[in-house]
Design a protein around this nucleic acid. Structure first.
Length: 187
DNA sequence: CTACCGATCGCCT
DNA sequence: GGCGATCGGTAGC
């Protein structure tokens, strides 16, 4: 288990170090291959407007999770870092709890189970009840990686503000990321 | 393979 | 009242 100190720094610093680490919720999850960083000083971040009811977890201590609903449909998972920054979890390798995940996504190819933040939320069973939960080895577990994967930085996906900040981090060459480069037709 | 569009709703202006 | 840190289906090349 990684301790809270691992996330007690800016999300931009913590995000690349999270690639290769293993994230589990109730035994479902696997190795992280794609994340994005969002900071307090970041027009694309949910903490940008200041504290509200929705983003309260982002303004709490590091080492908790921030969960919110996207497009009225999907539940997205973030790991809260220091100073109201957070890391959006976008993709992982489904290594643990595979039978549970398969039951949640009938007919969906294995490669798509956790490829994209919305699908990952469904696969792990993320919901509003998890907002503010502690990454303490209970329901949520975050384990240190073995070795150092090759990490590439690209532009973030699906946002309209601060698009130039290269704060999306992927494991180079992984087939489990939502897009190998920088999103649909990005350089 | 890429491109477009509808679904669906909580939050902020 | 407008707008997403998205996905899945369909259409077209």
């Amino acid at each position: 288990m990684l301790d809270a100190a691992f996330l007690a720094r800016d999300a931009v610093a913590a995000a690349p170090d999270l690639i290769g680490c293993t994230l589990l919720l109730d035994g479902c999850g696997g190795r992280l291959v794609e994340v994005e960083a969002y900071t307090r000083d970041d027009p694309a971040s949910h903490s940008w407007p200041g504290p509200t009811a929705r983003n309260a977890a982002m303004f709490g201590p590091p080492g908790h999770v921030y969960v919110y609903r996207s497009y009225g449909i999907h539940w997205l998972l973030n790991l809260v870092c220091a100073d109201a920054s957070a890391v959006l979890v976008r993709a992982l390798v489904p290594e643990w709890g595979r039978e549970t995940i398969a039951a949640r996504r009938p007919g969906v190819p294995e490669r798509d189970w956790c490829r994209g933040p919305g699908r990952l939320g469904t696969a792990l069973g993320i919901g509003p009840q998890h907002d503010g939960a502690l990454l303490d080895g209970g329901a949520f577990q975050l384990h240190q990686r073995d070795g150092a994967p090759v990490v590439a930085a690209t532009r973030r996906i699906g946002i309209s503000k601060a698009v130039e900040r290269p704060w999306r981090f992927v494991e180079a060459g992984s087939r489990w990321v939502s897009s190998p480069i920088g999103g649909p037709s990005a350089a």
